[in-house]
Design a protein around this nucleic acid. Structure first.
Lengths: 209, 209
DNA sequence: TTTTTAACCGAACGGTAGTTTGATTTTTCT
DNA sequence: AGAAAAATCAAACTACCGTTCGGTTAAAAA
């Protein structure tokens, strides 16, 4: 028993056959998995270790504390999200209409929430407040991207809610972040979901006169 | 030292001077307070006991377990919210326009989220998944109220997104539940927030043609 | 006043958490 | 091959968790 991966050290940029994924990443994946599915409490060092076929103490060879593990997951999640959105916006034609810019942004956000590394994106909501506060700055930077997007739309006259963006942005993002829930409940695809969000935000649900 | 409340037993319906609030409720309040502000982990029996000037063991005179405390907070929160919305909808004139019905519902939801017993409303989000699942049924019943509200609006032709309500309801509610956050960030009143939510949902933010 | 009951304390118990440490195994390097 | 480094283990340590229980105080009932 105990097939394991064949525990060999080093091996960062080496091109190997199966999955030379660094142990560090495997641990982060395991921890994120547990947190998202069973909560922060259930994410004990022993539980994480079991998922990567190790004993709890061995984790301390790769990380200096449990806190470091959680923090790295948190950072990776929000930083990936930020980078994707920032790049998407940057690569947009300067004269793209607001509706298109919004669609692109929503697409990136949603696909990240349900994509292959969705684990990292959903860890945040399961953490105790004390830890949450540590990534507040970075999360505000992400919200700022959206803020600027809307501000541009209003400056060009394409969007006009006449309202405080400080209210609109978290309101809209709050709805978007529930995406995985509704997708599960309705069986909709991420494209359908994105379309609904954009259409509803732009035009509302009131019967058109 | 140790002023305390003057530990007298019984006293349920007795009219006394200061606050004859039952110990049971005081404990629930304390626990909810800790959970919302510091998370579920921090809500230890010893921490709760300290808030009500007792020792941990004494809590077991009022509750048979920590689980019972949490479950009672959870039930009280969601049941109060359900009762308020159900009554608000019931007391609405039958021929009230959809926009008014929506406004009323949003008003109830938001005022509960920031009202005097907001503590109980926000406990849910801090609990480990295993406990969350216990109140899932009740929360689905609450969502059903909203679902019916929207369904009526679409049936009467006042609203028409042409979309799946299974998607729209959680999307809208997800945004609403972030209310306390944005209020803190923007300094807006709950009325402003409610107005923004209703207006945005009905008409969207696109510049009117 | 005596008795009874409600409310709380002090101190412990078993369990499990995160972490440390010294030995041990496995891989890489020479 | 052997030496060096990397990776893991087994076992313990401390700390704190939820919970129990016998004793203690104060109010209510008799």
């Amino acid at each position: 028993m105990k097939a394991r991966n064949g525990q060999r050290p080093g091996g960062a940029g080496v091109a190997e056959a199966a999955k030379p994924k660094s142990m560090r990443i495997e641990i982060l994946d395991a921890a994120a998995d547990i947190i998202v599915r069973e909560g922060y409490d259930a994410c004990t060092m022993r539980a994480v270790a079991a998922l990567v076929d190790m004993k709890a103490g061995s984790l301390y060879y790769h990380f200096k504390s449990k806190d470091e593990i959680v923090e790295e997951i948190l950072n990776q999640g929000i930083e990936t999200l930020y980078a994707r959105l920032a790049e998407t916006i940057r690569n947009l034609p300067k004269e793209a209409p607001f509706a298109d810019r919004l669609s692109a942004a929503v697409g990136v956000h949603i696909s990240s929430l349900v994509g292959k590394d969705q684990k990292y994106m959903h860890v945040y909501e399961h953490l105790p407040p004390i830890i949450k506060r540590r990534s507040r700055k970075m999360r505000e930077r992400y919200a700022q991207l959206w803020h600027d997007l809307f501000a541009d739309g209003m400056a060009s006259g394409e969007a006009s809610n006449g309202q405080d963006l400080q209210l609109l942005v978290p309101y809209f993002l709050g709805g978007l972040n529930r995406v995985p829930e509704w997708m599960r409940a309705s069986g909709a695809s991420s494209d359908q979901v994105a379309a609904l969000a954009v259409a509803t935000l732009l035009d509302g649900i009131s019967a058109k006169r």
